[in-house]
Structure formats: structure tokens, C-alpha cells
Simulated assay, not measured.
Amino acid sequence: MTKAAVVILAGTESHADHGRLANGLEAAKEFAETDGDELEVIFDGAGTQWIPELEDKDSDYHELYQVVKADSSACDYCSDAFGVTDAVADSGIQLVGDHDGHPSIRSLVDDDYEIITF
């Protein structure tokens, strides 16, 4: 059994950002589809901007996102900072702010999660 936390930090501005998102979602999908693995996907920083785009059925990454959506959360502070709090709330993705408004990476490490950032 593997415990993985995939943290999406890439914004939406560049071709490289799109690549990092795609690779992050693809890695998360592999964990999601492996019996016994535990997965957390966290959209943090500029990565929170992806949620409204991924909710769009016309997005190139919508289907991939759907595979990991149930295992996903978003930074409360960063969602506000990047102006996507309402879109995140509308998506059903949980806003997490258990460490000064941000997700606690330490608690994931303490729970033996491998942290993978994209």
C-alpha cells in the first residue's frame, strides 16, 4: 500500500504549466487506480486556478480530472488569493486551511504520505 499526496502548484499561463498539470493528474490517476493505494490531490498556490478550467467539460484534462476529483482538495487561502473560491466551492472540491489557511503538508508527512509536487 502506497500513500501519495500529489500537489499541483502549476498555474495556467504557460505551455510548461499545462504539461505539469497533465503529468500531475496522470501520476495521481495511477495511484487512484491502484487497489490499496491512498491518494490526496491538493491544488495549491496558482494551481487552484485550474479547478474552474478542469470543471469545464471541454477542457483537454476534464476526464483525467474526473478520475481524481473525489480525492482532491484546494488551499483555502490560495483559492481566495487567486480569485477562485466561488468556483472551487461550486465544484464540490473541499477547501482546506488547517495550517494558517493552507493545507498542512506536515500532517501528510506525519501520516507517511509521499509528497509529489507538480
Score class of each variant (00 low, 15 high):
N23T: 06
L95Y: 12
F31N: 09
S107F: 06
S91I: 03
G97S: 12
W50M: 11
E63S: 15
F31E: 04
F82H: 15
E33K: 09
E38F: 00
D100M: 10
A27N: 13
A81V: 07
W50N: 07
D80Y: 07
Y113L: 11
I51V: 14
Y113F: 15
S59N: 14
I8C: 06
S107N: 13
D44R: 01
H15W: 04
T2H: 07
S73Q: 13
P52V: 04
G97A: 13
A4N: 07
E26L: 10
C78V: 00
E38T: 09
K3M: 10
D60W: 00
V6G: 04
G45M: 06
D90V: 01
H15A: 11
Y77A: 13
Y113S: 11
A5I: 04
K69I: 05
F31R: 04
Q94T: 15
T2P: 09
Y61N: 15
D111F: 04
F118Y: 15
D111K: 12
T12E: 07
P52F: 01
L25G: 03
L95G: 09
E30T: 11
H15T: 11
D60G: 13
D56F: 01
K3F: 02
L25R: 04
Q66I: 01
N23K: 05
Y113R: 12
S72M: 05
E30K: 07
D100L: 10
D100H: 10
L108F: 08
H18V: 06
L54G: 06
H102N: 14
V7W: 02
A10K: 01
Y113I: 09
L9D: 08
I115E: 10
N23M: 07
I93T: 15
V96D: 01
W50Y: 07
S107L: 09
G101E: 09
A28L: 02
R20L: 12
A89Y: 03
Y77W: 13
S72W: 02
D111G: 06
T48I: 05
G36P: 03
V67S: 00
L95W: 10
A81K: 09
F31K: 02
G24P: 06
A81W: 03
G92M: 08
E30F: 05
D71S: 11
D112L: 06
I8Y: 02
P52W: 00
E38V: 02
V68N: 04
S14L: 03
G11N: 05
T85S: 15
P103F: 07
D56H: 05
L95R: 12
H99V: 11
G45I: 02
D17E: 03
Q49P: 04
L108Y: 06
H102Q: 15
D110H: 11
Q94K: 15
A32Y: 00
A46Q: 12
G36K: 00
G83W: 00
D71Y: 14
E114W: 05
Q66R: 10
Q49D: 03
S73C: 14
A22L: 08
S104P: 01
T117K: 12
D44E: 11
V41Y: 06
